[in-house]
Design a binder for these strands. Structure first.
Lengths: 326, 326
DNA sequence: TTGTAAGCGTTATCAA
DNA sequence: TTGATAACGCTTACAA
């Protein structure tokens, strides 16, 4: 006999009343509440969450989908897990390693009621394939999806990129290399367009020969600089996909005796703690706030209500943080 | 009517047979299997995982408990999530922010059948309180718990620490500072004892005045060096709690014009990618392998069988990685 | 190989 | 305020 039935037996009340006490319903007499509560404590009762989930259709679990738990997504992840927990939601990690089938499992888990909602941090499947899952529960994305059905909480990175470009130009750096992340990502596209437009507006050369893609880690950064340095002409400045790439550039420059920022200026992206420690100029990216946004969107749907208090009134802003590498 | 009932109705078979097909039981005729499979595909059926979990008593979910998802635990987390997924288990993150009540919620979730098992990465509650939860499901720990009931997959850090000390002494650094993590942790205790024992064996001074605690991040490292440098005598070498602290030390030393390794040698811990990039001498710590171990322990219990193939035959080893900071 | 029927542990709808 | 009873969607003895 389950503990639930035990409580029913010992208290003399019905199944329904016991359930009401568990769920703090107001329609219970004080005597019933006290008696049942006592017995619950005595038996050290906890509800079986699978039974609750089956009955209510809600798991209070949210899935978060990403290629892997890297440093780059860490602050988003951390903030999301934290705020979700504050609102009574657990977070399940789905790491896909960039594999489409792995990734689809997360979406299937939405369909099979394992999770109530989904946050996409990075994903590799076609948006038009994924949006079919929207009918099973709310989905929001950090990565921009280029699809209205799956809303994104990301900011347009063009804006941040322009801040970096203005800063560089104002200090006299005009021959600029760009180290991008994923070729197909909308972020990369935004950044590239921002760069090209900005340079054209200022009648400066657009150096597409200094574009590099799939540069994510410090090691990637080191390698990229080695390549660039092998050519006849060294750029005056490098715009990096993120701070970790910038660290790689900085380190490799030191090894090669390239002086920073005289011979080479470096700008990172995201403003992580290490960029501060290592004196790297960077663009502050309000990542934690975007994670908060992501949760709020989901929460609003799952609770069928707006969550005004948490939806930032003023839009988020990028900010240039000037340090020693420019 | 649920899709399950729909399948029963359309196929003409019973509830049990349909279930058998879903679970790939051998005791089903080819005709039945084909007919039912067809209908399942037609209806785009997926089982409701809450119903399955309620019925079987297994969720195929494992909770991972930590203060926060920091860089330091990242490779453990990543590897654990990956291998768990390979074996059909999802991972739920419980971040506690060092709060005992938050932490207990993870353990209560084991009790309420939300997760099948638990991995402790870091925890703040008393082991004797936590071990009461062992009866509800398997628990393993990365952090050493000092309790037999909750086994730990961690290695004794004394061994790694000794490697670092031997290396330093062999290069002539004898006046050594130690930057530790949490004061009460068994790791810190191990490291401190290793240091003291090693120095005494070699008739060298034990500099307890150069002990610092709660040093975790680059910023903590910078601050620690600032303090040390303010004193009359600077140590010849610093042993750091992890590579991130070492980065902070390295950076602050550069700022202060302290030359590395001539005036100050630095040894990190863990051998992260950044230690390589930044040329920091460190101790390689097979963290991913420990995460694998952790999963295997849980898996062995949950499947009531040994997992010999995955349990490393040879014991894991620390390794000194000498770079430019020594 | 198939079917019957009893669980799994809750919530929710009525009616009283 | 309470209680009967059905519903949630699936698994699993036990029989046939």
């Amino acid at each position: 006999m389950s503990k639930f039935d035990e409580i029913i037996r010992l208290s003399g009340y019905s199944r329904a009343t016991v359930s009401r006490v568990i769920n703090h319903s107001r329609h219970v007499s004080p005597e019933a509440r006290e008696k049942i509560t006592d017995i619950m404590n005595q038996l050290n009762y906890v509800p079986n969450r699978n039974a609750v989930s089956l009955s209510t259709g809600q798991t209070h679990q949210i899935g978060i989908v990403m290629a892997s738990t890297s440093e780059i997504v860490l602050s988003f992840l951390n903030q999301f897990v934290d705020i979700a927990m504050d609102y009574g939601f657990q977070t399940i990690i789905y790491t896909t390693r960039g594999d489409k089938e792995n990734e689809l499992r997360a979406f299937e888990d939405l369909r099979s009621k394992r999770v109530d909602g989904l946050v996409i941090v990075t994903c590799v499947n076609e948006p038009r394939l994924l949006k079919a899952y929207c009918e099973y529960g709310p989905i929001v994305s950090w990565q921009r999806m280029g699809s209205d059905e799956i809303p994104s909480v990301a900011m347009d990175q063009a804006e941040g990129y322009r801040l970096a470009l203005e800063h560089l130009i104002s200090r006299g750096y005009t021959r600029i290399a760009n180290l991008f992340g994923r070729v197909e990502s909308l972020n990369t596209q935004s950044r590239r367009e921002a760069y090209e437009q900005f340079m054209q507006e200022h009648h400066l050369p657009v150096r597409t020969d200094w574009y590099r893609y799939s540069v994510f880690t410090p090691t990637d950064g080191e390698q990229a600089l080695r390549q660039l340095a092998a050519d006849a002409e060294l750029p005056q400045a490098v715009l990096c996909a993120n701070d970790y790439v910038a660290i790689g550039i900085q380190s490799e420059a030191n090894k090669q005796g390239i002086s920073i920022p005289d011979q080479l200026a470096i700008v990172g992206f995201d403003n992580t703690e290490l960029a501060d420690t290592l004196g790297i100029t960077t663009i502050h990216n309000p990542i934690a706030e975007q994670a908060t946004h992501a949760f709020c969107r989901l929460w609003a749907v799952l609770n069928k209500q707006q969550m005004e208090s948490l939806l930032q009134p003023e839009p988020l802003k990028y900010k240039l943080i000037a340090r020693q590498t420019t």
